[in-house]
Simulated scan of single mutants.
Amino acid sequence: MNFRQLHQGPELLKIANVWDAGSAVLVQALGVPAIATTSAGLAWALGYADGNQLPIEEHAAALRRIARVARVPLSADSEAGYSDDPATVADNVMRLADAGAVGINLEDGAGAPALLCRKVDAIKAAAARAGVDLFINARCDVWLRNLAPGRAVEETLLRARDYAAAGADGLFAAGVTAAEDIAALAAGQPLPLNVMARPAMPGLRELQRLGVRRVSAGSAIAEAAWGRAQRAAAGFLGAGACDELFDGAAPYPQVNAALAAAQS
Rank of each mutant, 00 (worst) to 15 (best):
A258M: 12
A183S: 07
D85I: 06
D181V: 03
L245Y: 01
A90D: 05
A90K: 00
G240N: 09
Y252A: 15
A60R: 10
L204S: 03
L144Q: 09
W19D: 13
A187T: 03
D77F: 05
M94W: 01
I66L: 04
L144I: 09
S216T: 09
T88F: 02
L30K: 01
P113S: 09
F236E: 14
C140Y: 02
E206M: 12
A16K: 01
A99H: 01
Q208P: 02
L204D: 04
G218W: 01
D20W: 00
A36H: 04
F172P: 04
P190F: 08
M94S: 09
A125D: 11
A261D: 09
A99I: 07
K119R: 13
D169P: 05
V93Q: 08
T177G: 08
G167N: 00
G100Y: 00
V176D: 02
P251M: 14
A148C: 09
G109V: 03
T88D: 13
R71I: 10
A21R: 13
P202S: 12
N146I: 08
R145L: 14
L115K: 06
L42C: 01
L193D: 06
R213E: 08
R213G: 01
G203H: 02
A239Y: 05
A229H: 05
S216Y: 00
N2F: 02
D133R: 14
V32K: 12
G167C: 07
A234G: 00
G9K: 06
D133M: 11
I35S: 07
G218V: 12
G150Y: 06
G175K: 02
G100E: 01
G81M: 15
G203V: 01
D108N: 09
D108L: 05
H7E: 13
A34W: 03
A49P: 03
L193R: 04
L158W: 01
A110S: 11
T177L: 01
D169S: 11
A76K: 05
I56N: 06
V32H: 06
V72Q: 02
Q208S: 08
V176R: 02
G175A: 08
R198L: 11
H7Q: 10
V25C: 12
W143V: 15
Y82Q: 10
P113V: 15
E155Y: 00
A257Q: 14
P33T: 01
V72W: 13
Q230R: 11
P253L: 15
N256L: 10
N2V: 05
Q263T: 09
L144F: 04
S83K: 09
F172M: 15
R145I: 03
P253R: 14
A97G: 08
A168Q: 05
D20V: 03
A200H: 04
S78K: 08
A200C: 07
W143K: 11
A239I: 00
D50V: 06
E11M: 04
T156W: 03
L259V: 15
L147R: 06
N256W: 03
R68L: 10
R139Y: 12
L26W: 11
S78H: 14
L210V: 10
L158N: 12
R139N: 15
D77E: 15
D84V: 01
V27H: 08
E57P: 03
P33E: 08
Y163F: 12
L134H: 05
F135H: 12
L207Q: 04
A152P: 00
E244F: 00
V72M: 11
F135W: 10
R228Q: 07
G218C: 10
A122E: 11
